[in-house]
Computed example of a mutant assay.
Amino acid sequence: MEYADGPSVHSAVPIEAAVPRVWELVTDIRLPARFSPELRRVAWLDGANGPVVGAR
């Protein structure tokens, strides 16, 4: 038995918001730090300015 053959879970969450607003939230790497007592700071590496191909 391979891992891919094992049990899995799928879920869906309907979101009543415009796609640009959802994209803004999903790609905001600073958002989790606002709600986490452990995560304090995040930053894009290599001068990246947002979620672009190859950004780290």
Results as ranks from 00 to 15, higher is better:
34 R>W: 01
22 V>D: 04
34 R>E: 03
6 G>F: 13
14 P>I: 00
29 I>L: 10
6 G>D: 08
15 I>R: 12
47 G>H: 11
14 P>R: 15
48 A>E: 06
55 A>G: 07
41 R>Q: 09
43 A>Q: 09
11 S>M: 12
42 V>T: 13
31 L>Y: 01
2 E>H: 06
55 A>M: 04
40 R>H: 09
28 D>C: 01
40 R>V: 05
50 G>S: 10
24 E>A: 14
23 W>T: 07
25 L>C: 09
38 E>K: 01
25 L>S: 10
11 S>V: 04
23 W>Q: 09
33 A>S: 15
40 R>E: 11
2 E>P: 01
5 D>G: 05
17 A>G: 05
49 N>P: 08
6 G>T: 08
21 R>F: 02
23 W>G: 02
22 V>Y: 05
44 W>M: 03
11 S>R: 07
5 D>N: 14
16 E>R: 15
44 W>I: 04
37 P>G: 15
35 F>G: 12
33 A>D: 02
30 R>P: 01
49 N>M: 13
6 G>V: 06
4 A>D: 10
4 A>W: 10
25 L>T: 06
35 F>I: 02
26 V>N: 03
18 A>N: 04
20 P>C: 05
11 S>N: 12
19 V>N: 09
54 G>V: 01
53 V>Q: 15
49 N>C: 14
18 A>V: 13
8 S>Y: 15
31 L>E: 06
31 L>R: 06
48 A>Y: 02
40 R>K: 10
29 I>D: 01
22 V>T: 09
10 H>E: 11
33 A>C: 13
23 W>P: 00
55 A>S: 14
23 W>Y: 09
22 V>M: 03
55 A>D: 07
50 G>D: 11
39 L>V: 04
16 E>V: 00
50 G>W: 08
10 H>Y: 13
15 I>K: 07
16 E>G: 04
41 R>P: 02
26 V>L: 15
18 A>R: 14
33 A>W: 01
15 I>V: 14
26 V>M: 15
23 W>F: 10
3 Y>S: 06
50 G>R: 08
38 E>L: 05
51 P>K: 07
4 A>E: 14
39 L>G: 01
31 L>D: 00
7 P>G: 13
56 R>A: 11
26 V>R: 02
54 G>E: 08
6 G>H: 13
49 N>Q: 15
47 G>Y: 06
46 D>G: 12
49 N>D: 15
13 V>H: 12
6 G>A: 14
4 A>N: 11
8 S>R: 15
12 A>N: 07
37 P>I: 14
13 V>C: 11
41 R>V: 05
13 V>R: 14
16 E>C: 02
48 A>M: 03
12 A>P: 01
28 D>L: 02
51 P>T: 04
21 R>L: 03
52 V>E: 14
16 E>L: 06
6 G>P: 04
55 A>R: 06
23 W>M: 12
55 A>L: 04
46 D>T: 05
43 A>D: 10
21 R>P: 00
41 R>C: 04
8 S>G: 15
32 P>H: 02
1 M>S: 12
41 R>W: 08
45 L>K: 03
18 A>K: 13
21 R>Q: 06
43 A>N: 08
36 S>R: 00
5 D>V: 03
45 L>Y: 07
48 A>Q: 03
45 L>N: 07
10 H>L: 14
3 Y>P: 05
33 A>T: 08
35 F>P: 02
21 R>M: 00
44 W>Y: 11
9 V>W: 12
17 A>F: 01
28 D>H: 00
42 V>H: 00
40 R>D: 04
11 S>A: 12
